[in-house]
Design a protein around this nucleic acid. Sequence first.
RNA 1: GGAGAGGUGGCUGAGCGGUUGAAAGCGCCUGCCUCGAAAGCAGGUAACGGGGUUUCCUCGUUCGUGGGUUCAAAUCCCACCCUCUCCGCCA
Length: 422
Amino acid sequence: MLSLELIRQHPDLVKAGIAAKNEQPEMVDEILAIDLERRELLQQVDSLKHRRNEASEQIAALKRSKLDTSSAVAEMKEVSDRIAALDERVKAVDAHLRDLLLSIPNLPHPSVPIGKSDKENTIVFTWGDKPVFTFTPKPHWELGESLGIIDSAAGAKISGSRFYVLRGLGAKLERALISWMIDVHVKDEGYTEILPPYLVNRESMTGTGQLPKFADDLYHTDTDDLFLDPTAEVPVTNLLRDEIVREEDLPIKYVAYTACFRKEAGAAGKDTRGIVRVHQFNKVEMVKFVRPDTSYEELDGLLANAEGILRKLSLPYHRSKMCTGDLGFAAAMKFDPEVWMPGQDRYVEISSCSNFEDFQARRANIRYRTRDGKLAFVHTLNGSGLAVGRTMAAILENYQQADGSVRVPDVLIPYMGTDIIR
RNA sequence: GGAGAGGUGGCUGAGCGGUUGAAAGCGCCUGCCUCGAAAGCAGGUAACGGGGUUUCCUCGUUCGUGGGUUCAAAUCCCACCCUCUCCGCCA
């Protein structure tokens, strides 16, 4: 959510930012009109309420001196009726204004390159040497099937398309990755581990920005109006919703594993093979709450933490910087580390690290008290560290051998109890 | 699922139709004291929104949420949500 004050004072700047995200800048004019109407209504109703408050005191005084109050009471009854009518209009206008404000995207940071789509993202740098094979490397779905560790047919039977079953060392590798990633972030990088609920309420989804605009991508329970997490970002960020933290407690750094559930509504026909685009996947997510003046520094740290996992696994990757058109709804700046998949001859997004500045903090009302006693919104950031299913796919493709077996990366051997999957 | 208790400021917790934006305590801030600190003493300390002569003044709203009664609601009534205790069920 943007501050109304910013929209009032710099409407053109806000419009430009919205346009850069390929959204509708006309919303700004609508907001300004409604804001004006709201303020006019408030002036009327507030002065009536002032009168009512004064009259109430007079009536109380009359009663105390046992005098007649009937004429004053009759007059105030009329005033109260007018207040009720105006209050109803204020309520409607407030709701409309709030709906509009919740539908406005965050503004891109001024340094983010303008661009229409992911085609205009830029590669910041590339790390690692691509593995050299004496044979044609296979995609992970072929390896997974021949090794008997990824079973897409079983997933389709028991759930539907875009579901899969892991078996044996495949299941163990997934579990090993989750444990190891969390251990790295906790032991080496100072994050606190969180294991949150997978089902969250409407307020939480609104707080991080999934609602109201992206309901189509979410799984929803009709009986009690709960939503399945599309990412641990949602429950973990909302951990501090409506809270006030102390400045000296910032930054607060959480890491959480959850399963993630996404309808992939707009992805028909895309990535239909393998396990890179599915309705349920595992992810280890890092979430930070920081002082506003430090948030871009903290974004660098977050990227280093996400990419550290790739480096420890010796997986080649590059860092992609999102242009304005590919930032998404809530981010002011975003980088996607993308891992090399030799079996598919392409890079695949494996993490996404964003600074939301105060956009989520405003929606979720997450504040901190400064050392001189004032209240201010924190900045929030999050990044995958990493998407676990895609990490497994990258390991299979990068560590495969001529006979179809897969070496286990060194750091995972203690977690796997073996150095080879065959 | 059944029975009961309860949701009040940064925190604990009083209040149960009008003088309560809300006692008291804790915390925090300022001053005195001190070489400095602690203790002690004195004072201050909610958020959000509107208006203005915009380091301040003023008005309004807010006591879980939403309705209702009333000239007037933290206080009375209704519904819902949440927490705690006990019972039932259950991994």
